[in-house]
Design a binder for these strands. Structure first.
Length: 230
DNA sequence: GGCTGATCATAA
DNA sequence: TTATGATCAGCC
């Protein structure tokens, strides 16, 4: 008889080191191996299970499941990000950071914003993401604990302030993903009908697609490369 | 082929 | 509806 113990997620890690050790212990395993061990069904692809890899890693690392706007490991101040990479370790997708607040932004500053909070400390877990590799065969890579350095912080802050200014000024619908050097604003919605309130060009309330902040690939590529070349 | 804009599943 | 987890896929 199988013990149900193996189906339980571990307790949240006590500290950063313990979390990192857990992540290191997963590196080299395939998603199939990890999924089978906890009796998770492996989808044929991610088309209808886009968050599946992230959820699997959350389970193994003891992240609290939940949809609160805070870090995955709030107690120890760390955000978990799985990132799909090529065989060369190059990111294949942008990285979602958080929902962008489109109203009630008077007085919001960088020092207390969600973007800064989420990115203050990130555990990056690279996972093979090329679509020609069956999901079950994709391997977990070596994890990386990262905090933005002075240069990265400066760039993030600059983009954030520019984007937030446009949002406050009622220009959210004129923002494209081309704005921002390292941080971009793009739709983050269930579908085209899921609208949220924002500020229009004349300061009036409008309904528009929810937006999210994303890290551009060049930014994550550089931070991963910087680490793995050290 | 890469990127931007669109979309999928699920919980509360 | 808003938040979490993100990747899809058509257009340039």
């Amino acid at each position: 008889m199988r013990s149900r113990v193996y189906l339980l997620s571990p307790l949240p890690p006590c500290d950063e080191h313990q979390l990192f050790l857990r992540a290191q212990a997963l590196s080299g395993f395939t998603l199939g191996e990890l999924a089978r061990r906890i009796q998770w069904t492996i989808p044929a692809n991610l088309k209808k299970k886009k968050g599946w890899v992230g959820m699997l890693l959350e389970f193994y690392l003891g992240a609290k499941a939940g949809s609160k706007p805070e870090q995955d490991f709030a107690d120890i101040g760390i955000e978990l990000k799985t990132i799909p990479v090529s065989a060369q370790g190059v990111p294949l997708e942008t990285t979602f950071v958080c929902i962008a607040p489109l109203t009630g932004n008077s007085g919001v500053i960088w020092d207390s914003c969600h973007v800064r909070n989420k990115l203050s400390r990130v555990l990056w877990v690279p996972v093979e993401g090329e679509r020609h590799i069956p999901l079950a065969d994709r391997r977990i890579g070596a994890p990386l604990l990262w905090s933005p350095n002075a240069e990265e912080t400066k760039r993030l802050r600059h983009d954030w302030e520019e984007l937030m200014d446009l949002i406050v000024l009622g220009k959210v619908e004129s923002i494209t993903a081309r704005h921002g050097e390292v941080l971009q604003l793009r739709p983050k919605a269930a579908n085209r009908y899921a609208l949220t309130e924002a500020i229009g060009e004349k300061g009036q309330p409008i309904m528009t697609l929810p937006r999210g902040f994303y890290l551009k690939k060049a930014f994550t590529r550089e931070l991963l490369a910087r680490y793995f070349l050290l």
